[in-house]
């Protein structure tokens, strides 16, 4: 069995064991089985297919690499998603990104609005004070 760790900047995402992994990146597919020689493979973007008995899992990765030695795989990824299929994962990650950015923008606008209202209110209060 091969041990797999997936880490992202947000912390450890996923830990699992598998008998075979197939790595898909821009160069094509590559498989790693037990006792493979130590290897570093970049994945940007792509996915890893894990097989354990009959189960298949996909780890979709944007910006990262995997490092294999001593039957342990360390996957280091900027963004990653684990799931039963890989087709929607990239789209989902992109969606999350754009959602987040538009949310930031909206929050800025809300905050600026609230700030302006507050300033106006303060002005009104001060104006009434000296009359």
């Amino acid at each position: 069995m091969i041990k797999i760790n997936v880490v992202t900047p947000e912390g450890k995402l996923f830990e699992e064991e598998a008998s075979i992994l197939i790595i898909r990146n821009s160069d094509g597919e590559q498989a790693i089985m037990k006792n493979h020689i130590p290897v570093v493979i970049t994945i940007n973007p792509g996915y890893i297919r894990l097989k354990k008995n009959d189960e298949v899992l996909y780890v979709t990765i944007v910006g990262g690499f995997l490092e294999f030695s001593n039957n342990t795989v360390n996957v280091v990824a900027q963004e990653a998603e684990v799931g039963r299929d890989h087709e929607n994962a990239l789209k989902h990650l992109a969606e999350l990104r754009s959602q987040r950015l538009s949310e930031n923008k909206r929050k800025n606008i809300d905050f600026t609005k609230a700030e302006r209202e507050l300033r106006e209110q303060i002005k009104k209060i001060n104006a009434s004070k000296y009359q």
Binding site: V39, V40, T42, F65, S69
Partner: peptide
Amino acid sequence: KRQILYEFEPSPQQVLNVLMPIYIQNMIY
């Protein structure tokens, strides 16, 4: 220092080219 000799796919230079920007981005993060 790890006492393991790795293979780099596709090539050491290309792996480095991918990893360096990621490294900088995350250092800043």
